[in-house]
Write a protein that binds this DNA or RNA. Structure first.
Lengths: 141, 141
DNA sequence: CCGGATCCGTTTCGATACTG
DNA sequence: CAGTATCGAAACGGATCCGG
């Protein structure tokens, strides 16, 4: 979706940057998986139930890296592997993702909302705080 | 982006419905314009600075209508025209949009954040409440 | 094996032109 | 004014190949 982002000057409500990065559905899924599902390797993203193709995943990860939302690092445990992590900028998307998940949960036809959703709904601030806490903890590893 | 939405069953964090509707950048812009900028006619959307093409706009509006986010009505003032309005479901997207706009504003390189953004930042609840109030007021017209 | 890159047929998008 | 029709460009995604 190149066009709406191009002519973004002086918009009353900025949103174009979000469009460039999140306007793509796959990207949104990757960020959600990073933030809430603990996925971090190429393979884990590939195996996500939505079924992304490897070339698409590769491209999206590169783009996320280039806009500073994720970083690619060597796995500390296994130096042959890579792990992807959200940056601070990436983590700052938490409120957006949380609202998005909550909104979706309202209309998704599931018998019972998953525990994650219930935790989010109960206390948004607390949920974001704990996600950030987990993120910081994983930092040192 | 057809695929991620197709296999959406039993996701730990629902988001697929949001992907179907908001995963497209143009759609996001339309909803933002409806919610925060008071745009409501086909022409007003067309004239938005981002420059959407008429066929794209048409298709996106139809899709938004089919998923129950907007309704298409005759203009009460001028019966020859149509106006598009957010439904209750559409308005329930307000928190998502607000967080999205706030996040974008952080990284958008503008000299001063527009008044809207400052108002949002100051009090999110109040901003959403007033947006909803304006929406209800416009209902009776 | 893992993390991609490349190729290529198919689908979708979107700018422009056109119509009721 | 509010959309359709057309048609080239771009994106998608499955298969396959490659370096470590």
């Amino acid at each position: 979706m190149p066009s709406p982002a191009r002519h973004s000057r002086r918009s009353g409500c900025p949103i174009s940057i979000a469009l460039e990065t999140l306007g793509d559905g796959w990207t949104l899924l990757i960020v959600r998986d990073l933030m809430f599902k603990g996925r971090k390797t190429f393979k884990e993203f590939l195996q996500a139930e939505e079924g992304i193709a490897s070339n698409i995943l590769s491209e999206r990860l590169q783009r996320l890296e280039s806009v500073g939302i994720v970083v690619k690092l060597r796995d500390a445990q296994d130096a042959r592997r890579y792990v992807y992590r959200l940056t601070e900028k990436g983590m700052s998307l938490a409120p957006v993702l949380l609202e998005l998940v909550l909104w979706s949960a309202q209309f998704e036809r599931t018998d019972a909302p998953p525990a994650v959703v219930r935790a989010m709904r109960a206390d948004r601030e607390a949920f974001i705080a704990s996600a950030r806490h987990a993120w910081k903890a994983a930092q040192r590893s």
